[in-house]
Amino acid sequence: MGRNVTASPVSEKFTTAALLLMTFATGLVDAVSVLALGHVFVANMTGNVIFLGFWFVPHSGVDLTAAVVAFLGFLIGTVIGGRFTRHLDHDVRLWLTVALGTEVVLLLVLSILAGTGVLDYQDNGKLVLIAGLAVAFGNQNAAARQFGVQELSTTVLTQTIVGIGVDSRLAGGTGDREKLRYGVVFTMLAGAAVGATMTLVAVAPVITLAAVVVGAALLIFRYGPAAPARG
């Protein structure tokens, strides 16, 4: 049986805008984690699972501890997100406010701790940052998946890219949803580019920017116009 899909509290256009903002935030934080925290992903777990496979290869050069921390943190985040979904699904706007609000607060706390030097991302303090960021984006992914928009999981692009190829005119398809799919890819790419550029200077502001972007998505879900009722 398929999982239940939650109806967005806002129109399709605003839902897409909010999910694209969350996708941009993913690009930001994965740029930080890969470039500054030891070649580990905090939002995209596929890469970390591959890194964990390197555990069995001596001297692979991969920070396996960071990969384990990210994987477990992300899993904890999905559990938290699942609890929010099941306990607050009677009011979707409230649920998304709590879920995304939790992510925003966590990101802001991490940015403050990193910016003030409490967490030094050059030593074991980076593991706290990795864990916290992974929890935040595990929670985000748990929220986004409830809408059932395959292209907009906000953290994974594999199926989006598959869709571009399979449904393309070159493959005999109609090019359906092509603009959305290219938009999702470009959005994450742009987030990664901005995150990578900012990381050359400092890490904390990138995390702060991610919090602001997710906060904007929260405001859209909280106050955006509802989809018009179908007659």
Rank of each mutant, 00 (worst) to 15 (best):
N4S: 14
V5P: 10
V5E: 12
T6Q: 10
A7C: 08
A7Q: 07
A7T: 06
V10A: 04
S11C: 04
S11L: 02
L20C: 04
M22G: 13
T23F: 02
A25I: 10
G27W: 00
L28P: 08
A31M: 04
V34I: 11
A36D: 03
A36W: 07
H39F: 15
V40I: 15
V42P: 00
N48K: 03
V49C: 13
G53T: 07
G53H: 06
W55A: 15
V57K: 01
S60C: 02
S60L: 02
D63S: 02
D63L: 05
L64N: 11
T65M: 10
T65P: 02
F71I: 08
L75Y: 13
L75G: 11
I76S: 14
V79S: 11
G82A: 09
T85D: 14
T85A: 15
R86T: 14
L88Y: 09
H90K: 14
D91E: 10
D91G: 00
R93N: 06
W95L: 06
T97V: 12
V98E: 11
L100C: 04
G101M: 09
T102W: 13
T102Q: 11
V109N: 03
S111Y: 01
I112T: 09
L113M: 08
A114G: 11
A114I: 09
V118S: 11
Q122S: 12
N124L: 07
K126Q: 10
K126T: 00
L127A: 05
L129F: 03
A131P: 02
G132S: 12
L133W: 05
L133C: 05
V135Q: 08
V135G: 06
A136E: 01
F137N: 09
G138H: 01
N141Q: 15
N141M: 15
A142E: 01
Q146P: 10
F147D: 02
V149L: 15
V149M: 15
Q150D: 14
E151P: 10
E151C: 05
L152D: 05
L152R: 08
L152C: 05
T154M: 12
T155Y: 04
L157S: 07
L157W: 06
T158Q: 01
Q159D: 14
Q159I: 13
Q159W: 10
T160F: 05
V166K: 08
S168I: 06
A171V: 07
A171P: 03
A171I: 01
G172I: 08
T174H: 09
D176P: 05
E178N: 14
R181L: 04
R181C: 02
V185A: 12
F186W: 15
M188Q: 14
L189Q: 08
A190F: 07
A193P: 01
V194N: 07
G195T: 06
A196E: 06
T197N: 07
T199Y: 01
L200M: 02
V201M: 09
A202H: 13
V203N: 00
I207D: 00
I207E: 02
L209C: 00
A210W: 05
V212H: 12
V212L: 12
A217V: 10
I220N: 11
I220L: 15
F221Q: 03
R222H: 06
R222N: 14
G224H: 03
A226H: 13
A227P: 00
A229E: 03
G231E: 12
